[in-house]
Simulated assay, not measured.
Amino acid sequence: MQYHVLGSSGLKVSDVCLGTMTWGIQNTQSDADAQLALALERGVNVIDTAEMYPVPPNSDTYGDTERILGNWLSRHSDKRSELVVMTKIVGSGFTYIRNGGPITRTGIATALDASLARLKTDYIDVYQLHWPNRSTPHFGKHWPNRLTPSCINREQEVEGMRDILRGIKAALDAGKIRHWGLSDDTPWGIHTFLMLCHEMSVPKPVSIQNEFSLLHQKDWPYLIEMCAIEDIAYLPWSPLATGMLSGKYQNEARPAGSRWTLPQRQGLFRNKPQAQEATARYVKLAQDVGITPAQLALAWCKQVDGVTSTIIGATSEAQLSENINAFSLHLEAPVLDEISNIIRQYPAGF
């Protein structure tokens, strides 16, 4: 396992970040305990969760993933200082979470205290904004004219971001969080927060989590370049395209207990024809190399310049072990060249 500094935080984080969104629906407390034991044994030291987890989100299980992690932390308090725990405040859209409202200073205070209680910890290493208050080109909205950015009220958005930063500063000053980060944001969002942080004397964000995979590379190179130059860690989520790049959903297969047998928020299945065709090519390439398709996708992600730590999730110890093994692999130039050829033919799988 290799380690890298998380942006400007000074924290050292492993190549692998353990994602937890399956805990509470697909995985039990016992499953989570086993995953954590395996991950720590393999050198993973960063854990990512969110107040809205598990996924698919619903009012009955809201907050359960944090509770499961908190139960483990309460039984392993000696490990707390060795871990980088990241969680996220949800954005607007869920009526059962703060009446579906946007992220605000007061919302941060309420959400943070609730997360700390569920996690059974006195502090959170990195507290993240799950998504911006404005609409952004994420979650399938990256195609032309799916958004109307010309209609965004800049002054209103900037004032909302100032309000958020007041909440972040209060949390930092109180010692409830050590650093903060972004998720599902854009170059404009990063730039504006950096500008406002300088203006308001608030520490800048140390990281951003965005969707990134062989089938979804929209952040390369522009957003990733900005992160690298501005010393903001880039953490890909869904590096397997919600499992598609493992090959298990080829030919419309739906293995029992898999994520695609569950309702998908906003109907965001990745099984578009181009994604299926590209995945078939990646599966064949992985077979030729002698690794699994998931390992090919994860090893590629690790080797993208500017990636700090890749968020992986699993529903079994075997799956988690397979995925962690990918980060000890090195893809040689001919394999990377073939991957580039596939990307050229399928630049946007979904």
Score class of each variant (00 low, 15 high):
residue 5 V to D: 10
residue 8 S to V: 00
residue 8 S to K: 05
residue 15 D to G: 08
residue 21 M to R: 10
residue 22 T to M: 06
residue 26 Q to T: 01
residue 26 Q to S: 04
residue 34 A to F: 04
residue 35 Q to M: 14
residue 36 L to A: 09
residue 42 R to W: 09
residue 48 D to V: 07
residue 54 P to L: 02
residue 58 N to T: 00
residue 62 Y to V: 05
residue 64 D to N: 14
residue 64 D to H: 12
residue 68 I to T: 05
residue 76 H to S: 11
residue 78 D to W: 06
residue 83 L to E: 03
residue 90 V to R: 06
residue 91 G to P: 13
residue 92 S to P: 15
residue 94 F to Y: 15
residue 95 T to M: 09
residue 99 N to T: 07
residue 101 G to Y: 00
residue 105 R to F: 07
residue 113 D to E: 15
residue 116 L to K: 02
residue 117 A to Y: 09
residue 118 R to A: 10
residue 121 T to R: 00
residue 122 D to A: 09
residue 126 V to M: 03
residue 126 V to A: 02
residue 129 L to F: 15
residue 130 H to D: 09
residue 150 S to W: 14
residue 158 V to M: 11
residue 161 M to F: 11
residue 170 A to F: 11
residue 172 L to C: 08
residue 174 A to P: 11
residue 176 K to V: 11
residue 176 K to I: 10
residue 177 I to E: 04
residue 182 L to N: 05
residue 188 W to P: 03
residue 189 G to L: 02
residue 190 I to P: 13
residue 194 L to A: 05
residue 195 M to V: 12
residue 195 M to K: 09
residue 196 L to S: 11
residue 199 E to V: 01
residue 201 S to P: 06
residue 202 V to N: 02
residue 207 S to Q: 04
residue 209 Q to H: 13
residue 213 S to V: 01
residue 219 D to K: 00
residue 219 D to N: 08
residue 231 D to R: 08
residue 232 I to N: 07
residue 233 A to S: 06
residue 236 P to E: 08
residue 238 S to N: 13
residue 246 S to L: 01
residue 253 A to I: 00
residue 254 R to N: 08
residue 259 R to N: 07
residue 267 G to T: 00
residue 268 L to K: 10
residue 271 N to I: 10
residue 276 Q to I: 15
residue 286 A to S: 07
residue 293 P to Y: 04
residue 293 P to W: 04
residue 298 L to W: 03
residue 311 I to P: 07
residue 318 A to E: 15
residue 318 A to R: 12
residue 322 E to D: 15
residue 324 I to K: 06
residue 325 N to C: 12
residue 331 L to E: 08
residue 332 E to K: 08
residue 333 A to Y: 09
residue 336 L to Q: 14
residue 339 I to T: 02
residue 350 F to W: 13
